[in-house]
Nucleic acid binder design. Structure first.
Ligand SMILES: [Mn+2]
Ligand SMILES: [Mn+2]
Ligand SMILES: [Zn+2]
Ligand SMILES: [Zn+2]
Lengths: 149, 149
DNA sequence: AAGCTTATTGATAATGATTATCAATTTCAA
DNA sequence: TTGAAATTGATAATCATTATCAATAAGCTT
């Protein structure tokens, strides 16, 4: 059994929530997937395991996975909310091509450090941040200046 | 007449769009307001000038204002989309208290510089970025560790 | 293992923000 | 002034998400 499953079970117990087969199905589907995925994506994946699974359960379980620290909102500000893995995946920010949607994950230590300075300067206790860079990738900049979105 | 109005009129002409009284009303209401405001906020403000103004027109005009470079999406990832002034307002990022909603605008040159490095490193032509820091302000951290949201 | 309390489920309706549709009205170039 | 074309406000439609609820499943307690 994967570590993530132990964490999930422990989290459920700690909150008095029940370990149900629907939740197991959603977790399994989530662990098998990668990248940024929407509730709809995850529902499709989970239905391959249990075709009877309800959509509402996916939304609900995704929220639990986030609370348990296994998933997090990887919000691009278009379209439906998307989640990504967080357990055993290091922190990163996103660079997105507005031409073709290409997505690059990066981490820039200087930026992370500077962010902490900001928190300190304003007397805030940091809880998170989101940085999204948008532009045209080399391919798209070459072809034309056209953007989608 | 304010500079913003000239810019708006010039933009409309350049796109073959018409200068209508509804659009003037929305622009006037927008220019009188400040901060981050939703379509609903703006509709309320605009209705004080013209009570008959339609909601759809506000959504439509806000989009035009953004295209014209007068407004921009100041997206916090909760709730309805919010716009802020961009003309004669310098670039900044946002620091938000998850406890009380307090919002601080800041600009950190080092971060801006580092972002350009990222764009360069991956061969992207920059078109924008969004950085949002979230945490507890001193007041909220003092009172308790409780977050809203 | 059976009973029992409570959480969970899936279907469905409801919500909130935004966009599409459309007939009536306005704009503005000729 | 005219008339083609854009715009308006009302309204319906859409999309993602959440709420509701009766039926079911979990997991103690015995
Ligand atoms: Mn990512
Ligand atoms: Mn701002
Ligand atoms: Zn691209
Ligand atoms: Zn606060």
């Amino acid at each position: 059994m994967k570590e993530e499953q132990y964490l999930f079970i422990r989290y459920l117990k700690s909150k008095g929530l029940k370990l149900t087969s629907a939740r197991e199905t959603v977790l399994t589907a989530f662990l098998k997937s990668e990248g940024h995925l929407s509730a709809e994506d995850l529902l499709a994946a989970a239905k391959k395991i249990d075709p009877g699974l309800g959509q509402a359960t996916v939304f609900r379980t995704l929220k639990i996975l986030a609370d348990a620290g296994l998933a997090q909102d990887a919000c691009q500000d278009e379209g439906p909310r998307r989640y990504e893995h967080v357990y055993k995946h290091s922190h990163h920010d996103h660079l997105i091509c507005v031409g073709c949607g290409k997505l690059i994950e990066f981490c820039h230590p200087e930026i992370e450090k500077a962010q902490n300075e900001i928190f300190r300067e304003f007397g805030f206790q940091a809880s998170g941040h989101r940085l999204e860079l948008r532009g045209l990738c080399a391919d798209c900049a070459g072809k034309s200046g056209k953007t989608r979105e």
